[in-house]
Write a protein that binds this DNA or RNA. Structure first.
Length: 708
DNA sequence: AAAAAAT
């Protein structure tokens, strides 16, 4: 059926011959609000329910053609037809469709809708949902265009002295992350296999000299890289790598590359390329999201008559309809990891019960690198436990990835997760965009993400290529306002099934209950993490929580509670007056403020010689790390006042926070024993929590103080 | 102090 349709429409030369008319004119003058007709998206959605990759059907093709191509151009939907029309090189087609190679048959919407335009040489902004083949959409026609260039010599295929050099770059692809650049390159090499086209990468974190040597030796037609390294090698005349013949510039994840952080680099790279008024240059932009704010940048960067190919209706969300998105309120920040473990265990238990579910393979996203680390550490600690190993969780890989790891470790984690059958990847936003890990069943976002686009792209790591997947967002109640503002219109539904999400973790739990088992495992895993990691995690979350929470006061209380109850630490790190001011915390209760005499040392925090580590009260001989009762107001200023209160003076919220001693809930034993704090006094088993090994920070930090 | 990205 599809094939017949494709043939009916598949007239490539007609496509090439027809000039784009009204649509480009329209786009040039007004905000490009062109979009695929409604039938398209609804139909795609329906089809995807049947777990097929949303392809172009006959009906949609027709509708789309009319809408997008007033010139009645045709639409091709089968890769094999591209060969018949002699539009795309036979070798490329073979690489795509052969079962022992990429094994693809039918093109996706973006691929169909952009191919002819790209071959024609038009500038394009293409928007399509995550996991619908955007990479291939720009690779195939771009590689073809290079082959079409008579000045490109690929005649010496397979021989050592191919007549290409480091200045033969015809197309450049910029990616916002190193792993994505590498992934695109892998795909590009598959497509280009046997054509003689040379694909190279240039990303940071790798040996520059080795990379350069490779390009110098083998030459390069298509270069793929990240902004910093591309800038570096293209601006340095000594490298010999240059692009005087460049015809095509591709911005993958274009909205990201055009935003604040990247735009200057991208502009600088453009300035290193041949003057577009002298050598015609095609620019292609691809992304699942293009927020309004960047449209101006898009328009500035593309030619005035660029095409906006949008397969996502403007009133539609660029997520997949088939992906259930669940929202979970957590009682405190410390509940996230137990809830994550519970989610994984529940899933595995259902599998054990014979339900037809794929193995649990999840990405857990955090808003700070330090939090990814402590979470990965904690889960790795748990996974070492024999009870855990023998459970249905036993075969899970626990992996970590973020930009603070060495590139070697990053690459290893990504590779391992790709290969993993089941496991959890604890990730920062390095992997949020474009990464294609096969068979991810769950995306769990912990904390409201920094913006809507981030949410959408993270979610897009699951349910790719027609597969199923679930999205989860764990969020503190006090993030509601920012949630509504950023994600309010997305289709999340409240889920209250995870028991540990709402458990009061200041209690003691018995291993006889399922909740207790989970909580105690996490507690123990965290207890084995070192103190510095905990402090960094606290500090790392300061920025996002104070920004995300309904009030700064709530943010601090939640963080302090996470630190004491979740991490089993005594007193939260002191903050310098300067930092407090920057965070707007000056008049917030519950903050430990240092006296500002810190000396900077590695990583932005300083160790003040004599000041107690984390200013624990006990060893200083004063009243213990916590203020109790409502007598104390204000906060401590380091030690010079001799008092340590730190936080939570009574107050209506006090009792929730796990410290703030009323005595009724157990809370906190201060006193000289520094450390042991016993929660759950009301249950009568104080101090007997199953797993409370001596905290690592006692050893590693001694009496030193950390102020920030 | 909060992703990422050159050394």
């Amino acid at each position: 059926m599809m094939l017949g349709t494709a043939r009916r429409f598949g007239v490539s030369h007609a496509l090439r011959a027809t000039a784009p008319r009204s649509i480009s004119a329209r786009l040039a003058t007004q905000l490009p609000k062109w979009q695929a007709p409604s039938t398209l998206s609804s139909l795609a959605a329906t089809r995807s329910l049947h777990s097929s990759f949303p392809r172009l059907s006959a009906a949609t093709a027709e509708a789309t053609v009319e809408e997008t191509e007033p010139s009645k151009s045709a639409m091709i939907t089968e890769f094999s037809d591209l060969a018949a029309e002699n539009l795309i090189h036979n070798k490329i087609i073979k690489n795509i469709i052969q079962p022992d190679r990429m094994n693809l048959k039918t093109m996706t919407e973006v691929q169909s809708l952009t191919l002819n335009e790209i071959v024609k040489g038009d500038d394009i902004l293409a928007q399509a949902k995550t996991g619908t083949g955007k990479t291939l959409a720009f690779l195939v026609p771009t590689l073809q265009n290079i082959l079409n260039d008579p000045s490109v010599d690929v005649s010496k295929v397979g021989r050592r002295s191919a007549r290409t050099g480091p200045s033969e770059i015809r197309a450049l692809i910029i990616s916002p992350t190193r792993e994505l650049a590498e992934q695109i390159a892998v795909e590009a090499k598959k497509v280009a296999f046997g054509t003689g086209l040379i694909v190279q990468t240039a990303v940071g974190g790798t040996q520059k000299r080795a990379g350069l040597a490779k390009i110098q030796q083998e030459g390069c037609h298509l270069l793929i890289g990240t902004p910093g390294r591309l800038k570096d090698i293209l601006s340095d005349p000594w490298t010999g790598v240059s692009a005087p013949k460049l015809n095509t510039l591709i911005l993958d994840e274009a909205d990201r590359l055009l935003d604040q952080g990247f735009a200057p680099d991208v502009e600088e790279i453009q300035s290193l390329l041949p003057d577009p008024t002298k050598l015609d240059r095609q620019t292609l932009m691809f992304s699942a999201t293009v927020p309004r704010e960047v449209m101006q940048m898009v328009r500035q960067t593309l030619k005035p008559d660029f095409k906006h190919v949008n397969t996502v209706r403007e009133d539609e969300v660029p997520t997949h309809h088939r992906v259930p998105q669940k929202l979970v309120y957590t009682r405190g920040l410390e509940n996230s990891l137990p809830a994550l473990l519970e989610l994984a265990q529940n899933w595995q238990a259902r599998r054990d019960n014979g339900e037809d579910l794929r193995p649990f393979k999840a990405i857990a996203y955090f808003n700070s690198t330090a939090e990814t680390k402590i979470s990965a550490d904690a889960f790795n600690n748990m996974a070492r436990n024999s009870q855990f190993r023998q459970s249905s969780m036993g075969n899970m890989r626990m992996l970590e990835i973020n930009s603070r790891l060495t590139q070697a470790l990053r690459t290893r984690s990504a590779d391992n997760f790709r290969k993993a059958r089941e496991g959890i990847l604890f990730s920062s936003d390095v992997t949020a965009r474009g990464m294609d890990f096969p068979d991810v069943t769950h995306v769990v976002q912990i904390g409201v993400p920094r913006d809507r686009e981030t949410y959408i792209h993270r979610l897009g790591r699951t349910a790719r290529a027609g597969k199923e997947g679930e999205g989860w967002l764990f969020m503190h109640r006090a993030e509601q306002d920012v949630y509504r503002k950023r994600l309010g219109r997305l289709p999340l539904t409240l889920d209250t099934a995870l028991e540990t999400a709402d458990a009061d973790l200041s209690q003691t739990f018995s291993n006889d209950t399922s909740v207790g088992k989970i909580v105690n495992q996490v507690t123990e895993g965290l207890a084995q993490c070192d103190g510095a990691t905990k402090v960094k995690s606290y500090m790392g979350q300061l920025g996002t929580t104070t920004g995300n929470f309904d009030s700064k006061r709530e943010a601090i209380q939640a963080l302090n509670q996470m630190f004491t109850v979740g991490y089993n630490m005594q007193t939260p790190p002191e903050l310098s007056p300067r930092l407090m001011q920057q965070l707007g915390l000056n008049r917030i209760d519950g903050v430990s403020m240092g006296d500002g005499t810190r000396q900077r040392r590695d990583g932005g925090f300083s160790r003040g010689g004599s000041r107690g580590g984390f200013s624990r009260g006990g060893d200083r001989g004063d009243r213990g790390g916590f203020s109790r009762g409502s007598d104390r107001s204000g906060f401590s200023r380091g030690g010079e006042r001799g008092e340590r209160s730190g936080f939570s003076r009574g107050g209506e919220r006090g009792e929730r926070s796990g410290f703030s001693r009323g005595g009724d809930r157990g809370g906190f034993s201060r006193g000289g024993d520094r450390g042991s704090f016993t929660r759950g006094g009301d249950r009568g088993d104080r101090g007997d929590r199953p797993s409370r090994p001596r905290r690592a920070f006692d050893e590693s930090f001694g009496n030193d103080s950390f102020r920030f």
